[in-house]
Amino acid sequence: MRIGILNELAYRMNFLVQLLQSGMSLLTALVGFLVVFSHTETLGDWRPNDILALLGVYLIVGGLVGLLIRPSMSRLMEDVREGTLDYTLTKPEDAQFLVSIAQVRIWKLTDFVLGSIVLGYALFNRGLDVGFDETIAFAVTLTCGGAIVYSFFLILSTLSFWFIRIDNILVIFDAMYQAGRWPIGLYPYWLKFVLTFIVPIAFAITVPAEGLIGRLDAQTLGLDIGVATLMIAVSRLFWRYGLRNYSGASA
């Protein structure tokens, strides 16, 4: 973990680029937001400040994924291809744990910070009506969302034990993730299904945002927790199965 941070700090220029990138993505998101709400007062039954809060969650989750999960999983795929995973596997520590914290992109914190600002602003506009229940719901759903996205990534990355090169799959995730800027409920049925159960973006963004602004029902919350538990178990099993089939890159 510490190593990942040290590794990043070695390249200061990256920070500026990342700052610029975060700013740009926030800007495009805001422009989209303004364009939509110059035509309408509500979107589905979401009002502008709700959407803005969702945008905040979108940035926060994106920042967290980009901070740890994504870089570590990309690193895992690379390690499988180059055979350097061998070294990780000879360490007396749980290999899944080691690969999951292998790399940190500290600059992604900028997304996290910007997202928090956007979220704070949206909540302030709504009149700061976030109570105890909402806070708990947000914390639980955000944790579950994180766990689901992490498991999802782990399963994809484990596939590289067989297919070696599947970096492109991560690009697909990025593209899908963009869709999370808007409430998943707004999309047509088939897309809603894809974004919930195939690429679990609904659980990562929409559900936590709903929790925060008090729109979450108990059924969704239960489903969220259930799916998170299941995903963690499945991805763990799949990872272990993958390890058995790991053949390494020949020296």
Binding site: I3, L6, N7, A10, Y11, E82, G83, T84, D86, Y87, T90, A251
Partner: peptide, 13 residues
């Protein structure tokens, strides 16, 4: 395990 053709040391630090 030491493999002469691969390193475990991290490149940039």
């Amino acid at each position: 395990l030491v493999m002469g053709q691969r390193n475990q040391l991290v490149w940039d630090i």
